[in-house]
Design a protein around this nucleic acid. Structure first.
Lengths: 210, 210
DNA sequence: CTCTAAAATGAACAATGTTCAAGAAGAATC
DNA sequence: GATTCTTCTTGAACATTGTTCATTTTAGAG
């Protein structure tokens, strides 16, 4: 047994195929929704048998969960890229970035938030943790803006605020629900953050509804 | 052809069976989630063949959608029962009632909001409309509290606020996501409405975070 | 009672997730 | 390089579940 990674031919092929399967699955989910994802379609597109998909991911949920894992990773990366100089601008930036990311990858986000496991198997902890971490990204700017507040309460506030934004955006982008007309969504989100910041005493309460 | 409802024996049986199928389907969704709903289970529990389910509802989506339709009707009835004397109390009441209803029927609400149609068939318009109407129930109290604001903007605000609440509650109640710990949820919702009302200038901006 | 139309039935079919015995391919040993 | 061993790949077979439809049953009409 060699400790050094040998990059054996076998491992290379395996890894390449793994990536290929994920790319194909992501493409299908993104284009046609999670419900249109079929093992045989993925296998055929990847040029391998269905057995290989199972060999690599255990079961079909394994493919979905891996795509979801990468989705939340990509989301987190985008959110971490929001400038942090001005905490107020950072909050607006996080909201806007979440909206953009959601709008650009709606079906992937829905797969992340709506996929249910068969029976009562638990959702993988690491994915839950990553979502939690993403939703905690409002914590630092809020701490700067509310220096006297309890840290635990700020943590809750961050998740509450993020969950609220998630609700506005996920329902707003769903043409079938039309909770908020899409064109207006960006403006609505901005106004929502506005109101929230005024309510928290971070911004002055000015004229009601511009 | 007789215009008067004859309540023929045939129609009675048909109707009774219809109700029975719906009750059973709702029970399964409520107890074990939409993904555990199976035609054969429903048919067996209702003491009829699978064909009869199809005869009555067209396809399996028909059963699900009918349950969803009744869910949003029940929700709307509950929300309409919130006292309307004091508009501020009404807003808190709507939030609290939505939380209670969601907590009591989490799987039914998830079925309503997360069910995707096969292929690209559209979601029935009447259900969408009913959800929209439910989300508009904050409109009247908001109009009373913001008499100078544009009516269209209040309409948007109502849906935005409701969508935000929906996000906080649906993620908060999801033990798998734990965006907000369940025990804290009621308090979090109240505080959220609080902040929102202060931000809108409806309540005075007092001490930051009680 | 007989006839007709509607409904119920459930076996057969179709789509799709899952398994596994057999074979193929790479790695290890000589 | 041949042989052996390990691992991966394959795809047919199976399991589950939604859907159809020819046949039978049943309620209502004459």
């Amino acid at each position: 047994m060699n400790n050094v990674q040998e990059e054996s031919l076998r491992d290379q092929k395996k890894y390449r195929r793994r990536l290929q399967i994920l790319e194909i699955a992501r493409g299908i989910i993104s284009a046609k929704g999670l419900r249109s994802l079929k093992v045989r379609d993925v296998a055929e597109a990847a040029g391998c048998s269905v057995g290989s998909v199972y060999n690599e991911f255990g079961d079909f949920d394994g493919v979905i969960l891996t795509v979801n894992r990468e989705t939340v990773q990509a989301l987190t990366a985008r959110l971490r890229g929001v400038p942090a100089e001005d905490p107020v601008r950072q909050l607006y930036g996080l909201a806007e970035t979440y909206l953009d990311f959601f709008a650009g990858h709606a079906n992937l986000l829905r797969s992340l938030f709506e996929h249910r496991m068969e029976d009562d198997r638990p959702y993988p902890d690491d994915i839950l943790q990553m979502v939690m971490d993403a939703f905690a990204l409002m914590h630092p700017p809020l701490v700067r803006l509310l220096p006297d507040a309890d840290d635990v309460k700020i943590a809750l506030l961050s998740r509450t605020l993020f969950s609220a934004m998630h609700g506005i955006i996920s329902l707003g982008l769903e043409e079938r629900m039309v909770a908020v007309p899409p064109q207006m969504l960006r403006q609505q989100i901005e106004q929502f953050v506005d109101t929230q910041l005024r309510g928290l005493g971070i911004l002055p309460v000015g004229a009601r509804l511009s």
